[in-house]
Amino acid sequence: MDAKLRQHLSPSFATLIADELKIPGAQTFDVSNACAGMLTGLLIAESRIKSGQSKYALIVAGEHISPIIDEAMRRNLYLHPRAIASLTVGDGAAAYILGRSEEAGRIIFSEPITMAQFNHYCIGQACKSHVGPQMRTRAKDMQTAVFDNLGNFLKRSTDYMAVKWDEIDHTFSHPTTPKAVKKGAKIATDMMGEINFLHNNSVETANTASTTHGVQIELSLSSGHLKSDETALLISYGSGIGILAMHLKLPKGVENWS
């Protein structure tokens, strides 16, 4: 969505970004997977770098979703309770650059999973009667679906990635709401053990959809919580319901990034 609430369709937004940045030789395309879109993009980029097809990849996400609140406010919420979800929304942007490393395993992905039986729980599309987007969410059902499967997902993912839970320094969940993150953390703790550092920073930023991990990492960096070579687990889930996680060692010198 641009400032006039128009939806960019074609060519890919990535193509326009590459053109602005004067990167004519890059392959460019968009990935769409709701709030899990950024991690899906990172997953594709990582596999392309690993296979030697790309040296570096720029993965960018931007969200202008706060107008869904305007749409919801125009509704009679008694008749349209799903217009206001039990999620918070905020606008955000994030960018990652991935490149090859001599050290294996600096980034590892879980097996990505879509629980498509829940694909109707959150629908975003153009509002049929006004300018801008609308969203209809069965928020409680969606959270329940994630919570019911989170424990097994984490157990299975840490096994798949060969990562020890107690050696993960930082955990970033998808911040639907701060309360939901706490609930998820309780499930994770019961299944996996204590979480070393749960980053639950979304009170100020809200849920910035696909950009959320970038925004949360930036906040944690600003607070001085992240150091070179510490490990972090990013857990992402989005409408669909797609769920995947990325384990990474933080880049050297990260504490000096502005």
């Binding site: 990935v31 769409s32 299975r156 409408s239 669909g240 797609g242």
Partner: peptide
Amino acid sequence: THIQGDLGIHCHGIGLDSQSCFSFDVTDG
């Protein structure tokens, strides 16, 4: 995800060793 859901491919909860499917869209004109 609608294609996966309507085809009923691995539309079940996540088990410790259950099979799974991953779905997403790409676009570039």
